[in-house]
């Protein structure tokens, strides 16, 4: 029996990446996860724009659209990490813009109590260390599987669980302080 060698697929061409279609498919959830990871509503849109800029620059690395979600998660994590490093380098901007964190309530029919509770969750997540926050957001809020998180963060699954354990402990400690 002869082994059939598959004909190599040609590399993706630059023009094939439709940024508009990519944004329509992934823009909304990227905005959500970026806001959760960076803790800044006012910054999330800029970071998403940066993510798509990276996607455009590295479009040849996108081998198939099946795994693009994981690939975009990885880019999002890296873009947020880079932004955190920049901010730490040039002063703690986060503290200066504290009043802009997650802004104010928007919907008229959203009860203030529920909004404030959601805000408390965000505030506590912002207090976690960056590594714990990444795992916590991806597992508890984005509801990804452990193996997928390990692939996104380029760490072992066991490391995911150990960071998650620490993040949960820290989260619960803070939650008990603020919840009635």
């Amino acid at each position: 029996m002869t082994n059939v060698v598959p004909f190599p697929t040609p590399p993706r061409q630059a023009e094939e990446l439709d940024l508009g279609a990519l944004f329509d498919a992934h823009g909304a959830w990227l905005l959500r996860v970026t806001e959760r990871l960076c803790g800044r509503r006012d910054l999330a849109e800029d970071l998403v724009q940066e993510i798509f800029l990276v996607a455009w620059k590295r479009r040849h690395e996108i081998e198939d659209m099946q795994g693009i979600r994981t690939w975009l998660y990885r880019v999002a994590v890296n873009v947020v990490r880079h932004r955190h490093r920049s901010e730490n380098r040039y002063g703690n901007v986060l503290a200066r813009f504290k009043h802009l964190l997650w802004g104010t309530t928007s919907g008229a029919d959203v009860s203030l109590e529920r909004y404030q509770r959601g805000q408390q969750v965000h505030d506590i997540i912002a207090k976690l260390s960056p590594k714990q926050r990444e795992v916590f957001v991806l597992y508890e809020l984005e509801e990804l599987e452990g193996a997928e998180i390990a692939a996104i963060l380029d760490i072992s699954v066991n490391t995911v669980w150990s960071r998650l354990r620490l993040a949960r402990a820290a989260f619960k400690t803070h939650w008990e302080e603020v919840s009635p």
Binding site: F23, A28, R32, E45, V48, F52, V110, R114, V121, L141
Partner: peptide
């Protein structure tokens, strides 16, 4: 309940304007 309410504290964002900026 707290995790359900967490979503309420996200956004709002102008997706159409952001899309225009990205494209």
């Amino acid at each position: 309940q707290a995790f359900e309410d967490e979503r309420l504290a996200l956004g709002p964002h102008d997706l159409a304007a952001l899309r225009a900026r990205v494209v």
